[in-house]
């Protein structure tokens, strides 16, 4: 992997419009039974504008930025050797249906550990007003020759 990736900021992704049915589909897929994920009336009663996305939903938007990183011609990351090491989501507020989200990835660090490399990518996700919603951080391990 190219160590000069460290510190690089990628261009913001195209806005992603969070749909109500997408939130429900994702919520079903992670076995949620939480009414605020499915029922707009329950979400409104809890103080939200529409159905609330589960905590890991941000990965859908983050994924758009990880694709940028993996596709960067000078990154030298072989996707077939990539293993997901760590994942974190740090929220300012939950994602709700109707949000228009834009993500910007910064490579926080690149480390070498023996034959393996580790890249930590932070994707800051903001809403249409530019306000921070969540930062999704992944550490990817790229396995070397063994």
């Amino acid at each position: 992997m190219n160590p000069e990736l460290q510190g690089r900021e990628f261009p913001p992704t195209e806005p992603y419009l969070v749909g109500r049915e997408k939130v429900r589909e994702f919520a079903r897929a992670v076995f949620s039974t939480s009414p605020i994920n499915f029922d707009p009336a329950a979400a409104i009663a809890a103080g939200y504008a529409d159905v609330v996305a589960p905590p890991t939903f941000a990965v859908v938007v983050q994924e758009l930025t990880l694709s940028q990183l993996l596709a960067a011609p000078d990154a030298g990351i072989d996707f077939a050797r990539v293993v997901h090491g760590d994942q974190r989501f740090s929220y300012t507020r939950p994602i709700v249906a109707g949000d228009e989200l834009t993500a910007t990835l910064t490579v926080a660090s690149v480390k070498t550990l023996g034959a393996h490399s580790m890249v930590t990518a932070e994707s800051a996700i903001t809403d249409a007003s530019g306000a921070h919603v969540v930062t999704a951080t992944s550490t990817l391990v790229v396995r070397g020759d063994e």
Partner: peptide, 28 residues
């Protein structure tokens, strides 16, 4: 990410609408 997604559901359901998960991390 599926394992991560389901692992937080008991917390989400216990919490209900009293608040929200502000930070969530795991190591695979």
């Amino acid at each position: 990410m599926l394992t991560m997604g389901i692992a937080v559901q008991p917390v989400v359901e216990w919490l209900g609408d009293r608040g929200f998960v502000v930070d969530y991390q795991v190591r695979f």
